[in-house]
């Protein structure tokens, strides 16, 4: 089934190899960049969905506690909450389901075209959509000290894979909400996030140790391009990466363009003095119930909000703050 993705990928990779003068590494990097660019809208959508879900977590927990003896009511209330804020809890997963075959397809295309073993080379036959590209098969496997069809004997690439994967995870992993005392679920999620930041790089490092170094090039390129993409979009949370935590105001600053953030702050001051939090505002965006971790209480304003009710006819007082007079 993956052939639908793998075969065109192989053809494109070989075409790039042909026009880039037979430079395999450049072909892999270019191809990875093209795929990352093509899937950028999906990635952004997934990120938005993730963030939205996270910001709804406190409200969801409140619902769960309120209806802890009535699952049906709890589910209904959750659903209403999702509808009100225009959040699709499955959106992230669906996006991922689309991205995942692309990731595997790209991986497979590189493995097959490098053709380290006879079965891989045999597998390549019949996959080319342009028969003229047969003359490019198999890809050259020599680059610097590397044999791209074999693991790196100097272990430089596995180390780079681990380092860049860790960096990307650290930069991009969304922050977990601060947990209230005794909030086991949030603690568990935070612990899991931390574990993932460790496990993922190690796992990819192990892959890099045993697989062709051409794949390590792909992993590294993909990580760097991913980081670069998010840096260009101003979505990287440097403070969190440096272990200084991520408070709400930090997040506003880092996830929004500076101009918007300035406007937001000004509006937010007005809101905080004149408008009470909306009844149905998610807890994470209202004044925190637990002891705040910041010096200045986070002022959640309308423009800084990611989540806005989308249901027709619903007025969000945070989005359109009333002004006196």
């Amino acid at each position: 089934m993956l052939d639908i993705i793998v075969n065109p990928f192989i053809t494109i990779l070989l075409f790039l190899y042909q026009i880039l003068g037979g430079n395999v590494v450049l072909s892999i990097i270019t191809f990875t960049a093209m795929v990352r660019l093509a899937t950028l809208p999906l990635t952004l959508r997934q990120q938005r969905s993730t963030k939205a879900m996270q910001e709804l977590q406190p409200e969801l927990k409140r619902i769960q506690e309120k209806y802890k003896n009535d699952r049906e009511r709890a589910a209904q209330a959750q659903w209403e909450l999702y509808r009100e804020y225009g959040v699709n809890p499955m959106a992230g997963c669906l996006t991922l389901l689309i991205q995942f075959p692309i990731l595997i397809g790209l991986y497979r295309a590189i493995v097959v075209t490098l053709a380290a073993t006879p079965l891989q080379l045999l597998d390549l036959s019949g996959r080319l959509w342009v028969s003229d590209l047969s003359s490019q098969v198999p890809l050259a496997n020599k680059f610097l000290w590397l044999n791209l069809a074999m693991p790196d004997p100097l272990y430089v690439l596995p180390i780079l894979v681990v380092a860049t994967t860790y960096l990307q995870q650290k930069l991009l992993m969304p922050p977990t909400q601060p947990s209230a005392p005794g909030d086991k679920q949030t603690d568990q999620a935070a612990a899991m996030t931390r574990q993932m930041t460790t496990i993922m790089p190690i796992m990819f490092g192990i892959f890099a140790l045993s697989f062709a170094s051409g794949l390590s090039i792909y992993f590294i390129a993909s990580n760097f391009i991913g980081i670069g993409q998010y840096a260009l979009l101003g979505r990287i949370d440097i403070k969190r990466m440096l272990g200084r935590g991520s408070d709400e105001s930090d997040e506003t600053e880092t996830t929004m363009p500076a101009k918007t953030a300035r406007k937001t702050t000004a509006k937010a001051s007005a809101i905080s003095s004149s408008v009470k939090p909306a009844k149905r505002e998610p807890a994470a965006l209202a004044a925190p119930a637990a002891k705040p971790r910041h010096k200045v209480p986070p002022v959640r304003d309308a423009n800084a909000r990611v989540i806005k009710p989308k249901r027709s006819g619903i007025h969000d007082s945070r989005a359109q703050p009333k002004t006196k007079g």
Binding site: T50, L103, P174, Q188
Partner: peptide
Amino acid sequence: MNTFGVFSSSPRRLI
């Protein structure tokens, strides 16, 4: 690819 952020709120799905 930050494919994993989506799962941070759901450990089981992440695993």
